[in-house]
């Protein structure tokens, strides 16, 4: 008993590295790390696994037993894909999915255009008030978006332009709300680019506009990709803005899912399938582009 517990604590093991098995790269193998990480990974996947399993169970089954019992007796359990067809036919989540795409793609791309120019000015130009203006970006990043709801509903709603409920109002709001972080992130990356490149382009007679498009944008692709992923996830997963500024015909999957969450009894079985539908695309984007995302996140934040 005492020997097993001694093996599990790192401190004890580390004192005698010679007697331990080593990994292929020569570092000592840590049993403690393996055990804890396996447990954590199980803990982290368990809830999502439960959702996935439940989404294929009938309502009667899901209401009477836990999802793990279906997984333990896969043959006797009643499996069904009816929840998924119900979500697309009854709840019209197909339309919601398209709405989410139509909202998220322009709301991701447009702010990057504006932010990249501003970031260029902050990185490679000297002008009066530069410091103050950039500090104001840092400050505005912290402002809660709740401040904007009532005033923006006045401007965009029937009392103003009357475009509340349409995609454009959401594109506009996400452009504004994403802008401080976009400028901040892209500028932090551009500031690490060698200034000599800009100087030599200037001596060769290139204007700022040419330098921006031909040199700086290609060199900034990693950070632009990272911010694009972050903004896409944020817009796709957003509930507040979509709920307040889109009419029911333009509702995104997240808004539809929130409405499903309020359902009790009949239709409650659709919730799990709906949740899964809303997660598929961001998950795919995330895993496909994870490398860029991680690189962008760490290059921007871990410096000081």
């Amino acid at each position: 008993m005492s020997t097993t517990s001694a093996n599990v604590t790192t401190a004890t093991v580390e004192k005698k590295p010679s007697r331990r098995r080593r990994m292929s790269d020569g570092r000592p193998r840590s049993i403690f790390a393996i055990v804890v990480m396996v447990l954590l990974c199980l803990l982290w996947t368990m809830p999502t696994l439960g959702l996935l399993v439940t989404s294929f169970r009938t309502r009667e089954d899901a209401a009477s037993t836990g999802w793990w019992s279906a997984l333990l007796n896969p043959i006797t359990a009643n499996w069904t894909t009816a929840n998924y067809s119900g979500v697309f036919e009854g709840q019209d989540m197909g339309t919601g999915f398209i709405n989410s795409l139509v909202v998220a793609i322009p709301a991701t791309v447009i702010p990057i255009m504006f932010a990249a120019f501003a970031a260029y000015a902050f990185s490679f130009m000297d002008f009066r008030g530069k410091d103050l203006l950039f500090v104001s970006i840092v400050a505005v990043m912290v402002v809660p978006i709740q401040v904007a709801f009532a005033p923006m509903l006045d401007i965009l709603g029937p009392r103003g332009l009357g475009i509340s409920g349409q995609y454009i109002s959401v594109w506009l709001l996400h452009t504004g709300f994403g802008m401080p972080l976009a400028i901040y992130t892209i500028r932090n990356y551009m500031a690490t680019l060698p200034r000599t490149v800009i100087e030599s382009a200037k001596i060769d007679g290139a204007t700022h506009f040419q330098t921006f498009w031909k040199l700086i944008v290609p060199m900034s692709v990693p950070v632009i990709a990272a911010f694009a992923i972050l903004q896409f996830l944020w817009v796709w997963n957003d509930l507040l803005i979509a709920k307040l500024f889109l009419n029911s015909g333009n509702a995104t999957v997240i808004v539809q899912l929130q409405q499903l969450l309020g359902t009790q009894g009949q239709g409650a079985e659709l919730l799990t399938a709906g949740a899964f539908v809303s997660m598929v695309l961001p998950m795919a984007v995330f895993f496909a582009l994870q490398r860029y995302f991680v690189r962008g996140l760490t290059s921007g934040a871990v410096k000081g």
Partner: peptide, 8 residues
């Protein structure tokens, strides 16, 4: 989970 919405 970073890719999952708060609602999801």
């Amino acid at each position: 989970p970073m890719a999952i919405s708060f609602v999801g």
